[in-house]
């Protein structure tokens, strides 16, 4: 039961788990929404750390299609708001 930011940051390092160690698979697909403060500077600083495909896939599995398949070059407000919502406000339960 974690936020998608966490889902994007955790991998399995157990020996012998090298093939499919990221991203961790969801067991049931259920979500919960939590509110978080919007901080564009945090998001911009954090973008290089995101495994983008894993994030987009995870969001789509949970029914959120607001993010583009490729990380955009132009970080407009609408994009940052969507990213904020997906990373910090969607929790898979």
């Amino acid at each position: 039961m974690v936020r998608l930011i966490t889902h994007n940051l955790l991998a399995c390092h157990v020996k012998g788990c090298n093939t499919n160690n990221f991203p961790l698979q969801f067991r049931d697909i259920q979500i919960e929404l939590r509110e978080a403060e919007f901080n564009p500077d945090f998001l911009k600083g954090f973008m290089p750390k995101i495994e983008w495909k894993a994030l987009v896939d995870a969001a789509r599995q949970l029914g959120d299609t607001s993010l583009p398949l490729e990380q955009p070059e132009m970080l407009d407000d609408e994009f940052l708001k969507n990213l904020h919502h997906v990373l910090l406000e969607v929790k898979e339960v």
Partner: peptide
């Protein structure tokens, strides 16, 4: 709202990617 997540693990086997 600023506590992102709480995770249970041994730090010597931490799962940070």
């Amino acid at each position: 709202s600023r506590i992102l997540d709480l995770c249970t693990f041994d730090v010597t086997r931490n799962p940070w990617r």
